[in-house]
Amino acid sequence: MTPGIHHYLVVSALLFSLGLFGVLARRNLIVIYMSLELMLNAANLTLVAFSRFNENLNGQVMVFFIITVAAAEVAVGLALIVALYRKRRTADVDDLTSLRF
């Protein structure tokens, strides 16, 4: 069967769900972060697919921007994790519950 937009969207939805599972189930902050990247990529795939099947380049431009923002976000996020680790000597979310009371 020739893959249409539905196929791409289903792949994207599954990838997104995988990422979400990682965010919810993994306890290592860095792995959670990687799962987030996965979700972001799933969204990118959707945009590129729509761009292709709608004959419109705007989607691709958006993906370009998302990749740029993601790069900045990863840099800042990882710096935060490093700073946090310096202070608490851990990168496990189960140990980072001081926002409680």
Binding site: L15, L18, F21, G22, A25, L38
Partner: peptide
């Protein structure tokens, strides 16, 4: 491949 590697990445 993407789904398989993704799965191996998170779980």
């Amino acid at each position: 491949l993407a789904l398989l590697f993704g799965l191996l990445c998170v779980a």
